[in-house]
Design a protein around this nucleic acid. Structure first.
Lengths: 207, 207
DNA sequence: CATCGATTTGACCGCCCGGTAAAATTCACG
DNA sequence: CGTGAATTTTACCGGGCGGTCAAATCGATG
């Protein structure tokens, strides 16, 4: 699974530059819309030079997916079964929203991949992602059954968090078209806090 | 704005077949990923024949966007300022979820377009969509200020509804990867009802 | 500074794509 | 059933794409 580590410092530098450039281009244009020429140019290399580091467009895309997976799953991973339930869930919401704000390209890369039917990421979805979600859903279900939070459907709760937070990254142009230049994230954070707080049966500020 | 109506019945039939095929292909592969050959084949025509009806790929895509716009906005349009606020908002949620269930291709078509930065749809977003959203946000804000629903941010409320309902269509493969063969929609409807009901300050069933 | 592997380049290939042109065919109508 | 317009087909073009290859260049090591 783990790659044989690139030895030379040139390899380290160029691989990093390529992955960064590929993230930019794949996120903005999707797999089919991205071209190796464009990625190579963004990385400051020629196309054959890029192919010296990654054997094909597909291999490059797979490398990115693997490279980003842990970053992507981290916010959910951090949810602690031994923590205070409401705090843990709202903390997850907050971290995931920060992920959209600070890593919108990564969000759009995954969004593109999944929208197209996840032709390359499906194994990851059905494997690592499903395992993690099943585990955390069980945690949430236990919290719910013990009455520490209200009755919730853990899977749909998790989908909700994904949908809401990623929306601000994936559909940013639409949000901006409607909100103008206003930064949506402060309002989004307050709203998501309110929304999930209420849904979990919280006692929150009422006007 | 309105098209000069295609006169002959052949035109009517073929234009419809092309739009249907193009919806299928654009939704599944995005604008760049779609090819005229594939669309033509799905419509049962040759590529030059398709180009006899639509002057270019771009023109075809624009025609679809225009064709689908009213369908797409209808659920929000139906929200009635004179209705009972909670009922109106939850009704909107329900209609929008039904839209995802019954028209997932349309949802993915728009998702693709917006993800890529809405190069063709931006005028619509900043025009017709923004006007409609501003109008309905004002209605919701009035409801909120009059105390008929709890304090909400109308824009983020609307974004939430879009994000949550469209998620089930746009990221269907991911939902299925995690939920397996279970139909997600019944659970989604119950959950969204609970979620928004709670956020609006509803008195709902508690176990 | 010589050597040999690592890296980079330029030239190229076959394929597919969006689009065009013009001939061929089909269709509606008198 | 003939005729002119509407429709469809065949052949094609220029460009861009992913990918290959062999030659050139670079760079670490002794």
């Amino acid at each position: 699974m783990t790659k044989s580590p690139p030895r030379t410092r040139i390899q380290v530098r160029n691989r990093a530059a390529i992955l960064e450039a590929a993230l930019e281009v794949f996120a903005a244009r999707g797999f089919r819309g991205a071209t190796l020429d464009r990625i190579a140019q963004a990385a400051g290399l020629s196309k054959p030079n890029l192919l010296y580091y990654f054997r094909s467009k597909e291999a490059l895309h797979l490398a990115i997916l693997e490279d980003l997976l842990e970053l992507w799953l981290a916010p959910l991973r951090e949810m602690d079964a031994d923590g205070e339930p409401r705090e843990q869930i709202l903390g997850y919401v907050r971290r995931k929203l920060e992920m959209s704000r600070d890593h919108p390209r990564e969000s759009r890369l995954f969004a593109n991949e999944i929208l197209q039917g996840a032709p390359r990421a499906r194994p990851v979805l059905e494997g690592e992602l499903k395992v993690l979600v099943d585990e955390k859903a069980a945690v949430i279900a236990a919290w719910s059954e013990s009455g520490r939070i209200g009755p919730v459907d853990p899977y749909h709760l998790i989908f909700s968090i994904w949908a809401l937070t990623q929306h601000y990254a994936d559909f940013e142009v639409q949000v901006r078209a409607i909100m103008g230049k206003t930064d949506p994230y402060p309002g989004a954070e307050a709203w998501l806090d309110h929304l999930f707080g209420a849904a979990l049966g919280i006692s929150h500020k009422t006007t």
